[in-house]
Design a protein around this nucleic acid. Structure first.
Length: 597
DNA sequence: CCCCTTATCT
DNA sequence: AAGATAAGGG
């Protein structure tokens, strides 16, 4: 299904939304451009309405939305609006300094989908995608009336387009459901014309999304998190505070559940892996077991919140371990490097009665990372993480927003999973030393990922911070990613993983990051991973660089006075140091899991 | 108000 | 179970 919205990264919608800004005042242009870019939109500016019109005429599909000032010398904004409305089907947002009702009305009458008052606020811009989205829904619904689709089926059948992680073109954000008949049409139309009446599509917290979330949480600091802050840091325009709040609630819930689990099992930990095993919903793929093992093992390689805490601490924040309410506090401080994978069963058995087994593994983070490998042949699939979600989506009755490519990747059937999984699995982890425990689990030791910085930072983290099992199925993919990344800088060239599966993982992963890395360039897709590679390495691991930026700065920018240009260095700094990709790379090994238990 | 948390609903 | 929404509090 084609979409009018040909954003490079449909799954990252609305990142990459192509906005044309028209304003005769260059200062405003600049401000708006920056603000819009901060929303991860792709911005084109134009100070002449005529030029704008020309551009639009030249290629109607070059933009998703137009924002135009009302008062312009060469052409009245309304005129432009009229033309655009007439000649192309683009949502247009008008703006002006005054909010005179008649003007606004005129704008709306002429077909403006919105009317903004200057100074325009970030919030408003962040939201403009909705107009595109709305239009998109219209289209989808229209199509729906003619074709019968099962959404999941559709996704699957079209999976070739999606599998490569390249634009599935379009807002498959709305999963179209089967349409009964025309009876509903009126209802639908009503929905369409009145978005407020429309059932909101649920946000699916995909791996990537959750990753952003966790990164944000980490950045903020555990004791200081709040939905709003997280939202701001995540820089996902379409996300609402409520979304985040809800997710946060679940996240906390999950963590506390985890804690309890750990508390009760810890004394005996190591004695029974299965005790750790959460009750997974039985699945038809037969991967449940491995997943469980994953989770268990993953516990050993996930560092939860603490990492960042400690990082912050290192940078001067006054954070004490007990600040990590219930998250870290329940875990004892462990000596680093004490436990290697090889010792796992050992250490666990000899645990001193306080979840040491778990902690030990954490302790090994810095230099030695316990890395969960999967034995089951069909569970090592980059795409598998989605399964839970995908299944859910399948049975879900309401429209789902499938925001990340992961869902698109879902292979049609088990076998395919297996194939990929096998492929992946056959590539042994780097420097790995597999250790079997109870004949089920293979724990693999991984050497320091990034020794240069690892000793400084990660080392610290591991030393003091013990984590929680934030991993689930999804985590494994991410661990893999982390490893892939981690190894990049110091790769000795002998990494088989890199050869075989790195690219795939890497690309998959980066695809979803792209919008935030290249908000400016315009050519999302053209950026191959070669382009990205350096970025991931330098920016990704530049802990010291990124740490300097914090919320306040971001906010400062956001509240930037309109008369003044935002300091470009700051802006750039934000973009390159603080944006998601870099952030997310800061702690490549941490917090990469979803908390689906 | 705005934001956060908790409870409840779907 | 995962997310939305309502309710209550600072």
């Amino acid at each position: 299904m084609e979409s009018g919205f040909a954003s490079p990264r449909a799954d990252a919608f609305p990142a990459g939304l192509r906005v044309l800004v028209v304003d005769d005042d260059p200062t405003w242009l600049k401000i708006l451009e920056k603000m819009l870019k901060k929303c991860s939109y792709e911005v084109t500016t134009c100070c002449l309405a005529r030029d704008a019109l020309d551009m639009l005429r030249e290629r109607k599909d070059r933009f998703d939305i137009v924002i135009s000032d009302v008062n312009m010398p060469d052409m009245d904004g309304f005129k432009l609006l009229e033309h655009v409305g007439l000649e192309m089907d683009l949502p247009v947002i008008m703006m002006s300094v005054d909010g005179e009702t008649s003007r606004v009305m005129k704008g709306v009458q002429h077909g403006a989908c919105d009317y903004l008052l200057k100074p325009v606020r970030m919030k408003e811009l962040r939201n403009i995608w909705q107009h595109v989205f709305r239009k998109k829904i219209h289209e989808v619904k229209e199509i729906e009336n003619h074709e019968i689709h099962d959404d999941v089926q559709m996704m699957r059948s079209g999976s070739e387009e999606f599998d490569d992680g390249h634009l599935p073109s379009g807002l498959d954000l709305v999963s179209p459901r089967k349409r009964k008949d025309m009876e509903n049409k009126e209802h639908e139309d009503q929905e369409l014309s009145d978005p407020s009446a429309m059932k909101k599509a649920r946000v699916v917290w995909s791996v990537d999304l959750h990753q952003k979330f966790v990164n944000a949480v980490n950045q903020i600091g555990f004791d200081k998190v709040g939905p709003k802050k997280i939202l701001d840091l995540m820089k996902v325009p379409w996300l609402t505070r409520e979304n985040v709040a809800s997710h946060l609630q679940k996240y906390r819930l999950y963590l506390s559940r985890l804690q309890k689990q750990n508390e009760s099992k810890a004394p005996f930990c190591g004695t029974k892996q299965s005790d750790f095993t959460p009750k997974d919903t039985p699945g038809s793929f037969g991967i449940e077991n491995s997943i469980k093992m994953h989770q268990n093992n993953a516990a050993n390689s996930s560092y939860g919140y603490c990492g960042n805490k400690i990082l912050l601490q290192n940078v001067g924040s006054e954070i004490h371990e007990n600040d990590l309410k219930g998250i870290i506090s329940f875990l004892p401080i462990t000596e680093p490097r004490k436990a290697l994978a090889g010792d796992v069963s050992n250490t666990q058995k000899s645990s001193n009665g306080s979840r040491v087994g778990l902690s030990h593994s954490f302790g090994s983070l810095g230099p030695d990372v316990n890395y969960p490998t999967i034995q089951s042949p069909n569970c090592w699939n980059t795409d598998i993480p989605v399964i839970q979600f995908a299944q859910k989506a399948k049975q879900e009755k309401e429209p789902y927003i499938l925001l990340e490519d992961n869902y698109m990747h879902l292979p049609p059937s088990g076998p395919q999973n297996q194939i990929q999984a096998d492929g992946l699995q056959s590539s042994p982890p780097i420097n790995s030393r597999p250790v079997t425990e109870k004949g089920k689990v293979i724990a693999t030791e991984i050497k320091p990922l990034c020794t240069e910085y690892g000793s400084n930072h990660v080392g610290d983290i591991s030393r003091r911070g013990q984590g929680i099992n934030l991993f689930s199925v999804q985590a494994d993919k991410d661990v893999a990613n982390a490893q892939a990344f981690g190894y990049m800088p110091t790769a000795t060239g002998s990494s088989p993983m890199r050869n075989q599966s790195f690219d795939q993982i890497y690309i998959n992963n980066w695809n979803s990051l792209q919008p935030s890395i290249i908000p400016e360039g315009g050519s999302f897709l053209s950026s191959s991973h070669e382009d990205l590679e350096p970025c991931s390495l330098q920016g990704g691991y530049g802990y010291t660089e990124t740490v300097g930026f914090n919320n306040e700065e971001i906010l400062a920018y956001e509240h930037l006075d309109l008369t003044a240009d935002p300091p470009s260095h700051l802006y750039d700094g934000l973009r390159f140091n603080c944006d998601y990709p870099c952030d997310s790379m800061e702690y490549p090994l941490m917090d990469r899991g979803l908390f689906i238990a």
